[in-house]
């Protein structure tokens, strides 16, 4: 099977030749082409394309994943801090009241959103990558979920307090963010994206209670995923962080693939969601991929695959996004071990 066929089959619980593997490799790419993961990189479609292709050659996993999060944060007017060589971080709040949200909404005309320089760069990258990989490898466009983005606009502490004291503000902001995400989705599918995904650690039980999640985050995560689904793309949702307390709720998003952190046992998740949702995750990004070596990673993958009941409906993936200092050889080991142990699995 080609990589894309394998991924699509796994997402739909159809027969696969081996378990697909998503390496979360993108942050390591800039270094390969002599660049840094910084603001200029995210505005340079040629660099992003070269970076992804260089990584795909080296790591040889089953997906190319492009990062829409910086673009979406810029669209929403987030004030970011750009480290020398890492993902952008929260700088200062821009939203503190309903009036601020209204002002933001007034400026989010679809024509302006699509013309955003980061959005344009990523659309160009999506087209260029698709032209190269065609239908051989799955192409994913990933962005933050509503709470992650709201935290970038309000500041995390203020957002956390607002979930209990300024509910109307959080609802309005999340609705606006979800609408913006959904509005952008068809453009990326037209450009070649096969999978649209969101990751939202700030609405996970690492931050908020299952009750607040159900009341304030889930409706908008669902709005985003359902909007993505209407484009015909495969959808993936990553509720990043200690997900067991909300495991009964995450399926309500309707995402085709539920991607869990390593804190959720992949085999347990697979049984819970069997034939309803595919599941992804399993690999410990810190102890295995950052601190570990070939032996540790191989043992980690072997153990994960050994415990799985089904060969389909599952994707092996690091439990969280990775930083650029993960050794590429560790990602290569993860891919090789996944193929080695899943090929002959019944």
């Amino acid at each position: 099977m080609l990589s894309k066929q394998r991924v699509m089959a796994a997402a739909r619980w159809k027969e696969v030749d081996q378990i697909p593997i998503f390496a979360n490799k993108s942050p390591m790419g800039p270094k390969l082409i002599g660049r840094k993961l910084n603001r200029a990189f995210f505005l340079d479609d040629a660099a992003m394309t070269s970076s992804e292709m260089a990584l795909l050659d080296l790591v040889d996993d089953d997906v190319v994943c492009l990062n829409l999060a910086p673009a979406l944060q810029d669209v929403l007017g987030a004030r970011l801090v750009w480290p020398d060589n890492d993902h952008p971080q929260f700088g200062a709040p821009t939203i503190s009241s309903l009036a601020d949200v209204q002002e933001l909404a007034d400026g989010l005309e679809p024509s302006r959103v699509i013309q955003n320089e980061f959005v344009q760069a990523l659309l160009a990258t999506t087209r260029a990558v698709k032209k190269i990989i065609g239908e051989t490898v799955a192409l994913e466009v990933n962005c933050y979920g509503v709470f992650n983005l709201a935290a970038r606009l309000m500041g995390l502490e203020r957002l956390m307090g607002a979930t209990l004291r300024q509910k109307a503000l959080v609802h309005r902001l999340c609705d606006l963010i979800a609408g913006t995400q959904v509005g952008l989705a068809p453009h990326f599918v037209d450009a070649g994206a096969d999978i649209l995904s969101i990751g939202d650690g700030m609405s996970s039980p690492a931050c908020i209670s299952p009750r607040v999640y159900g009341e304030m985050a889930l409706p908008y995560l669902t709005q985003t995923i359902q909007g993505f689904r209407r484009t015909g793309a495969i959808t993936l949702y990553h509720p990043c962080g200690g997900e067991y307390p909300i495991i009964d709720q995450v399926g309500q998003t309707g995402a085709d693939i539920l991607y869990f952190s390593e804190l959720v046992d992949l085999d347990v998740a697979q049984k819970i969601f069997a034939r309803r949702h595919a599941v992804a995750g399993g690999v410990d990004p810190v102890h295995s991929l950052f601190m570990g070596d070939e032996r540790i990673i191989d043992a980690n993958i072997k153990q994960i695959i050994k415990k799985l009941k089904y060969k389909s409906g599952v994707i092996i993936q690091p439990g969280c996004g990775l930083s650029p200092n993960i050794p590429i050889i560790n990602l290569q080991t993860m891919v090789k071990s996944t193929r080695k142990y899943s090929k002959n699995m019944q």
Partner: peptide, 11 residues
């Protein structure tokens, strides 16, 4: 004990 979460602790 995961009865309270970050928002509750902040308040």
């Amino acid at each position: 004990e995961e009865e309270y979460f970050v928002p509750e602790l902040l308040l």
